[in-house]
Each structure stands twice: as C-alpha cells, then as structure tokens.
Design a protein around this nucleic acid. Sequence first.
RNA 1: AGGUGAUUAGCUCAAUAGGUAGAGCAUCUCUUUUACAAGGAGAAGGCAAAUGGUUCAAAUCCAUUAUCACCUACCA
Length: 888
Amino acid sequence: MNISKKLKINKIEKKIYLMWEKNKCFKANYKKKKRFSIIMPPPNITGSLHIGHAFQQTIMDVIIRFKKMSGYNTLWITGTDHAGISTQIIVEKNIKTKKIENISKKNIIKNIWKWNKKYTYKINKQIKLLGNSIDWDKKNFSLDEKFSYAVKKIFISLYKKKLIYKKKKIVNWDKKLKTVISDLEINKKKIQKKNYYIKYYLLNKNKKIKYLLIPTTNPETILGNTAIAVNPYDKRYKNLINEYVINPINQNHIKIISDSYVNPLKGTGCIKITPAHNVNDYKLAKKHKLNIINILNKDGSLKKKFILYNYLGKKIKNNNINLKPPYNLLNIDIEKVKKKIVFILLKKKLIKKIKNKNKKILYSNKSNSLIIFLLTNQWYLKIKNLAKKSINVVKKNKIDFIPKKYKKIYLKWMYNIKDWCISRQIYWGHKIPIWYDKKNKKIYTGFNKKEIYKKYKLNKNIILKRDKNVLDTWFSSSIWTFTSLGWPKKTIEFNTFHPINLVVSGFDIIFFWISRMIMITLYSIKKKNISQIPFYKIFITGLIRDENGKKMSKSIGNVINPIDIINGISLKNLIKKRTKNLIKTNNIKEIYKNTKRYFPNGIKAYGIDTLRFTLASIATHNIKINFNINSLSNNYNFCNKLWNACRYIILIFKKNKNINKNCKNKKYSLINLWITIKINILIKKFKKNINKFRLDLLCKSLFKFIKHEFCDWYLEFIKICIKNKNIINLNLIFSILLKTTISILKIVHPITPFITEYLWGKIKKFKKNKKKHTLLIKQKFPIYKKFQKKYHKKIYVINIIKKIIYFFRKLNLKYSKKYNKKYTITLIIFNISLKKKYILLKNYFLFKNKNINKIFVLCKKNNKNKHIFLNFKKTLLIKNIYLYYKLI
RNA sequence: AGGUGAUUAGCUCAAUAGGUAGAGCAUCUCUUUUACAAGGAGAAGGCAAAUGGUUCAAAUCCAUUAUCACCUACCA
C-alpha cells in the first residue's frame, strides 16, 4: 500500500499541524530548566519562499523538535524583513504595470503595506506547510512598532556616543533608484570594453613631447579631470611633473602630479584623475589636495553646471575653471555622453588608437543599472571599535561557527571592515531619527519632534525638519535577536532565551547580517554589565544548486519551488512557471529543453515528509549542494517503507489480540536483545550527529537502520516467530516489537513529523496508560542505554544466523526453481564457542530450512572426528567460524 | 593577485578518531501465494586528480603541481 493513497497529502498534514497548534506544542514551557532557542533569518517580503528557505528551515525544525523531545524549554521565533530597496522596487514595478500614473510617495507606501500583508500571509502559510514548529504568537516584522522603537533607541545611543556621523564621501550610486548602495549590493561582470588612447596636449609647447597619451575606458569622465598622474620614478615623464596639460574637451588646465600609486608598466604610465567619480582617484585627490569636479546629476545625467569642491569636499568658486558641459551635452545620460565625447575626440583627431580590453563593470544588484560614483553626504557608523570586540568574541570561541572554516572568512572580513554607510535615499524603511534646525544650523536626535522640543527646551518658533533618508535594511536586521524577544522591555522571553542558542543561515549573509548582528548586539545588550553576544552558535549551510551544480535563478530557469515538490506539478505547468515574467526572453527555448530533459514527467507529489527527509539528508557541510530530483523518489520510498512496516505491525497486533504487548519481563531472548541494542546504537548516533549538525549522516543512519535492519531482518524474524508460536514466547517478542516501533517513531519524528505523528496515533492504542500518550511531538526522546559487553557478545550470534541465511539465499539462486533442481544439504558449523553454540541451537528455528538434512554445530574442542569433514565444501561464515556443507 | 574549499564506482554523494573505501540511482541475474514490485534476494563496478614526504599503517596529516568552484581586491 502506498502512503499517498492512504494519507491524503495536505488534508491530513494540515489537520496534524492544527492539532499541534491547538495543543500548544510550539509554545515555550518555562517549567523546564534547560532552554534552547532558535531564530529564523527573516525572509524578505519580496516574494515566496524557495528551496533554500525550506532547506534551512528543515534543519532548524529538526533540531528544535529534537531539543523539545529531549526535555528543553524551546522557542523558535520567526518574522519577516521589510527588505527596503528590494520591496520598494517590486511594488513600484507592480504599480507601473497597472498603469496607475502619478502616484505619490504616500500612495506607494500604502501599496507597500498592502503588499506586505499579502506576502507575509503567503510566506507564513508556506512556513506552516513545511511543518515548522514555530510559536506564531511571537512573529515579528522588521518595521513594526517594536522594531521602530528599538531602532530609534539604538540609533540615538550610537549618535550620542559619536559612533554615527554624517560625511561627504564618494559612494556607489544607483542612478535608477537614486540611492547609495553598499559594496555588497554590487554585482560584477567581465566584459570587453574599448580602451581609448587620448592625446592631452601640454600647455608648455617648448617641450620635446607635445602631448601625453592617456588610455581610458571611460572617456566621459574627462570632463571631471583635475589632474594627470605619473610615477615619480618614470624617466619618460620625470621632467613633466608639475607641468600642465590641456583638457581635450573643455580646455581646462590640468596639473601633472606624481604618485607611486601609478604603475609605469601598465598602459602608457600616466593616468587621468577624476576624483568625483572614481574611488582611487578620490583618495589621490585627498592626498594631493586636488580639486574635485562633480559632473553628474543623481540620475546619471550630465549636470548643467558642474560643481567644484576642494579636496575636503567643500564647495568653492573658481572662475578659471570651465564648469560647463560643451556642445549641449547637458541632461543626457552618461552612457550617451560617452558616445558623443568619443565622437568629438575622433573629430578633433585626439584619439590615437582604440584597443579592446577586458574590464569588470559594476552594476547594481537591485536595479541592474550601471553603478556610478558620486560624492554625496551620507550617514556612517564608525565600525573599527565595534569590529574589534566582535573579532574577540569569535576568536575566543564565545560564538561558534559551524563548519569552522567560516570563522576564517568572517575574521578576514572583519579585519578589513570599513565604516558602514547606513543611510539610503528611498522611502520604505526606518526613517533616520534626526531633525534639523536649518536656521541655527543645529542637529537633534530623538524619538519624535515633541520629545525633542521638550528635551532641549526649544522655542516653538524653531522649525524642525526631519532627515529624509531611511536606514539600510540591515540596520534593523542587526537587532533581530533581542528585539524580536521583546527588548527593550524585560520580557520573560528575552530574559530566558537571549542569547539565542542557534542561528542557521547561508554563507552569503555572513557579512550582511551575522557580523552586524554581533557588533550591534555587543554594543547594545548588557546583562549584569557584561556585553551580550546575539547567539552561541551559527550553523552556515551550503547553497542549494540545481542538478548540474548551477545556482538556482529565475533567469536560468532552474528554480524548484518547495511547494511543487510537496504537491507535484505537471511538466507543462512547470515550464509555464519557469518561463513566466522573465526579463530576458532569449533563453526560453533552453529552459524548455532542460526542464523537459530533467523532469520528463513533471514532478510527482512527494509530500512534506519526503521533502524534509531529502533536505535533511543533503545537509552536508559542503559549500555547494546539488539538489538531485532522484534522491526525492529514493526518500519517498523510505517514507513508504516506514509506512508499510507500521501498517504490518498494526495488522499482526490486531490479529493476535490475545497476546500481551506490554509485559515487562527483563529476560531478553536473542532477537529482542539484538534489536534493543541496535536501536540504542541508533540513538547514540542520532545524538552525536545532531550535535555536530551532520543531518546528512543522521539521515543515512536512520535510512540504513529502518530499511536494512528493522524491515529486512527484524520484521522477517518476527514473521518466523509468529509461525513458531508454540516454541517461542510471543508476549515477550510483541512487547519489544511495540517498544521498538515506538522508539523508531520517536527517533524519526523530528525529520518526518507528519507521517510519524499519524502512525503514532494508530500504534499508541496498543500501549497501556493511553492517557499519558497524547501526541508524539510531546513524547520524550528515547534515552541511550549502554549494554554490557556480554550482551554484545551474545548478539553476535545473530550475525552467524544472518550469514547462514545469506548462504541459503545464494544456494537457492543457484538451484532455483528456474533450473528446477531440488537439493538437500548437510551442514557443519565449526569452531564456535560453547556459549554461542547453545544460543545458536536455541534459535535454530530462525534459520531452519526445508533443504537441511542434518546440521552439526561443533566447538573447537570437540573436533575429534575430523573425518566427518571429508567431501565437504568449506566457506567462512564469520571471523573464525566456518561452514562446511555437502549436497546430498 | 590573494583567500577558502573541492577532486573517491557510470551518475549524485558519504565515511564523525590515520587502521582491509560505503550508500542511493543506473546496470545485470533471480523473484508476484502479500506489510511494501515506488518491493524483495543476489551480482558486478574503486590502486581515491598527479608526484613526493611523515607513519608499522594515508582517501584522511604535510609539501608541490594540475583542474574546478566560490569569496575578496585591483585593473590606466
């Protein structure tokens, strides 16, 4: 019988989930002393969950269920992140497609809140569908009141300690979104670009050299040149240092400076300096006190009039410098300016040659537009001191990285960390709690206007205007652990569960999230005057990739949605899903081809437990995890096997109503002892592997035990026992069978909670004390019991029996029905100890075979009659024990 | 350029402590009187990327090389 036939997927699973919720199974239980908490990295509200989310959540759920069953007071908290820029883009796009024009900011924000409601519901539904044991009364949103209060509180505190400052610096600018973005939000692409070699004529015409040849891939920035740099030791240009060249476009005079930064071996050995639009040039400008010319508007177009700054970033006036763009280039996007400038230069014959060059270009991860560099005023967080403490905490192993290799990556990043730019020029997010009094040039910070007027005793005539910027999303994420537990209120949750025991996350957000959480928590949270870490352990999972090891992405069209694995999907619909809403439409054919190749029949409905088991079993400590659809059917078979085994056990229990399944005789028969020891070994392995976060090994040991020990051998032995009712005490056998089955259900429950909970409902009926045993999730995890060596020796006989059965299976193959050969055989088992001989003979019924004519079991000491081995063939059974056989 | 990993059966991956290399899928043979054919039983398949070193003993530790992946930085 098949699980999916019996367990109507979704319906029963939903019922079971509701039952858990009703019985408050996901709530913290403060009566218990030991505590364990997990916090989920908050999914963005930008879309639905993908397989990577399902993967991480499964790991978290397995661990928290195990801890709960092991008697811990557990709490798993979830929530969603407002994901500033990303969400704003998606909602704006959505509005544009609906062709609602001239929408105000207020309306967009209203729309984002609507979107938020819709997607939070969607995401939470998905999380529930996966069976995650989350306390839903404690869900959070990174933009809710609790968070906005905490964000302000921490901002104010940091500002007062002068750790937050505002400064004009060169930043990565997204011209489409018109906001600063961080280095981490930039993608890099290698492309072939044209490298133009441009003539800059010298002002002093008496020199030997008439012009300097300057290679550039960005001729548009010529307008912002304020210097030419050469290496001080470059013989070619040594005499020209401090001379001037003429800007080929606007005829400004540009000084030649020297700096060892210039590599004389590269290019022509001289470079142009555009401080406002190149990070390195900006550094040089500061060093050499060069002027800075900003030529770009915030949308990436050319300014009507350029702005001149001194090296400190202060606006200055200078009539000698031409600050107007030539030839009506104003208000054109920089990409077009480039083409026109090249055209002008060609016309003036100022380009000596053009070469192709491989160059990395930077584009925004958020809007996909090319990054420009702009000098802007932004808010920064001074980070060096915060980083120092965060490095120490990890170095001293107060925070554990699992696997360890990520510790190195984290530390390396932290050593080279720069001040964190925390302001963004968007409107979806936490507004910066800064107010300006422009008349008196004063800045105030506080929770709101009223508070500021009161606190600083300001006159009502003073007009306060709030800073328009919004905080980087990761600012509110960095306070996630403690704020979602209720901080700054001293809640029971915060007092009990902080620091969080475990965070499970992908390595891609170590820098975004993990490092910042550590820094901000160490700064903000103190218990008994000691800085608190946000969490004790961080388990970094690999990234799930497709069957070929490629990253899953919409544009490649290899994404697998967890819901499609649970409910199944036809090939047609899968292709439809994968090709829908694509930005680039040129690879639709390939997506079609590949999808058809790897999923010729679509995806079958595998159900939640199969998905969970599969995800857990691929949770190796590799950085790259290939998701193979084959492993799903394999694990489906496993769940099916478990299902059928339990069904069989229920069947024989019902058939043998008279037999006592709850007798407590401690005398073990061989099979009982053997399976009990085996299950104890399994428990030991389970605990070991879960503590090491090796869910892959854990699943493997479960799979092996249930399929190859429990089903293949133990249940087969049970069948033989039932046939031999008259010789064997079935009361004992059935009692252990019931006990073993229950143990198995408990052990597998954290991984496949639904099927086990369902089967538990059927099996528990055979147990005494029914009242105690309500739900499997509330049961205690089986305790490992150590058995003495003598018992281990005793069960060694099972191995001998197995080998004898193997022997007969092979023999049967040889003389099978097909060949229609009948045979009888005489066996001698030789070199067996007296004790084992006794046990073996006592359990003869286990391997009794109609083909056996006679059987002798001989100890070493009794081998007087050596002649009986004549004409016998010999095989090794196990270690020194031999089997002699003769066909009759 | 620097860093972090990886290289094991046809494929996808394991081996927790250095001790005769294990699964699943695929392949081949047998098997429908039943808990399960999405089963069961059996077989075949590997000198572990290469070279050298340490050790009684190396897939595992060390060094070098090759290939691949990812990360960081720079590129006039």
